[in-house]
Structure formats: structure tokens, C-alpha cells
Design a protein around this nucleic acid. Structure first.
Lengths: 117, 117
DNA sequence: TTTGTATATATAAGATAGTTATATATTTTT
DNA sequence: AAAAATATATAACTATCTTATATATACAAA
């Protein structure tokens, strides 16, 4: 990841990956990084060092399943969501919206009481 | 911190603390935790183990200054933002909004193309 | 009276998550 | 022939956060 808003990405990676897979169907690792890059106009760049541990953990937790397929002589590993993964994706998206609501309360500027003066 | 949306809080603590101090003027540690708790209806609970390291780091970075004052026989440490801290608070709030915009692009449900059928 | 709760600041130990660097290998473009 | 893009993955390191601990006062309840 790059750019300045990356500190905020901490903790959102799992949600991004799960939701993307729930929406797009099966994808392989490289494809996930490219999809995130394209959809955000290059502003969010997932690193493999972050992505693969997340994919492996989600697989361990029963959120994802994998199939390996030979494409052009190379093994490619596809990841897709399980029903649990799909449900969790929806839950995490709701939680994120709730979190943004709380953050807005904390970060909003105080109302300018002198405006009517 | 408690509740389920806490994974998303990772990386937002500095922003919350800076913005709160920029807005409210000087505050002491305990007061910051109480203010966050009240404003979020108890949904975000800052722990001291997270708060104090952040306050000390922001002080080191020149974002905050401290004054110690004796209140009811005890020393109380007040933190307030410097001009740099105030400017950084605004920047971080903008960055957060930009980040939320990017997240929405990634997390939005795909348009239901079959609706017109 | 002593136990618990609230107020108040802070550090230490440990866990988790993420970044950067590295290894490996093929295909396509320059 | 070299560089860039495609492709998966691990290792070392760092930052951040959680949980536990230490210290101390004031007040309310049992």
C-alpha cells in the first residue's frame, strides 16, 4: 500500500477481500490486487505480503475455499467465499458503515453558533 | 476498546485524539477517554494502554504540548494542540473522508442490472 | 470498616496486523 | 537481451493495539 490515507486501511483488509470475493465470485491473488487497484484508480495498492496472510487466515477460518487450476502451464490458485464467508462479508460491511457513523460523530466540526449574528 | 467494529479503529486513534483536542481545547487523558465514550454512546472505549502511547508520540512529534496542574492535591496533565497539531488534525480528517470514499467504492453492492426486467 | 466504583496517570508484556524485502518462475514487451 | 508484467509465497521487521499491572485518592455502599 502507498499514499497517505493508508493508516486508515489497517483493519479493513479482511473486509475488502471478503466483500470483493463475495461480489465477484472466484478470484486469484494477483487478480484481487489488480481489481482493488483499478476500482480505486490506483489509490489503494494491496501488497502481497499483506494479502496472502489474509487469504490464508480467511481460508483457515472457513470463510474461503481454494481450487488450484492449471492456466498456461502454471498452477493458479482460485479463492471463493463459502456461505459463512458471504454472510461475514455482509456483516463486516454493515459494521464498517456503523464505524464510519461513529467516526463522523467524533470528527465533525463543532456547529458554528455565531453564524446568526 | 470493545464492541465488534473495533478492528476498523486500527489506525484512527491518532486522528481521533488530535481532532478532539483541536476542537475542545486542552484536555487530560482520562477526560479524553470519557469524551469519546460519551460522544459515541459508549460504543467506542479508548484504553489507556493505547491512549498514552499515542499522546506521548504526538507530543514528541510536536503536535501537542503539555502542562501539569495541581487539581485537588493531584497532578493532572493537560494536553493541547500546537499550530502543527491543529493543521494535522484537519488534514487527517480530510484523509479519513477520502479513505471512506475509496472504501465505499470497494464495498458497494453491484448494481442490480436485472431490475428493469 | 472494608469493599467496590470512579477518578487519574502510566508502563510492561504480549498479540496482531501490516510493510518491506526476498525467492522463484513464466510470459510479454521493448 | 533486458525489462516489465504476470503469478504465488515466505521471512524479517515494525507499528499498533490489547491486556495486565502498578500506583494513588475520593466517595458510596454493604
Amino acid at each position: 500500500m502507498e499514499s497517505s490515507s493508508y493508516e486508515f486501511l489497517r483493519g479493513t483488509l479482511k473486509t475488502i477481500v471478503l466483500k470483493l470475493l463475495a461480489e465477484q465470485g472466484r478470484m486469484y491473488g494477483y487478480q484481487i490486487t489488480q481489481s482493488v487497484k483499478e476500482r480505486t484508480g490506483g489509490e489503494i495498492l494491496l501488497t502481497f505480503g499483506a494479502l496472502y496472510p489474509v487469504l490464508h487466515k480467511l481460508e483457515q477460518e472457513g470463510m474461503l475455499v481454494t481450487e488450484s487450476e492449471e492456466v498456461e502451464g502454471r498452477l493458479r490458485k482460485y479463492y471463493s467465499v463459502t456461505p459463512l464467508g458471504s454472510q461475514t462479508a455482509d456483516e463486516k460491511v454493515s459494521e464498517f458503515e456503523r464505524f464510519v457513523g461513529l467516526m463522523r460523530i467524533l470528527l465533525q466540526s463543532p456547529p458554528d453558533v455565531a453564524l446568526g449574528q
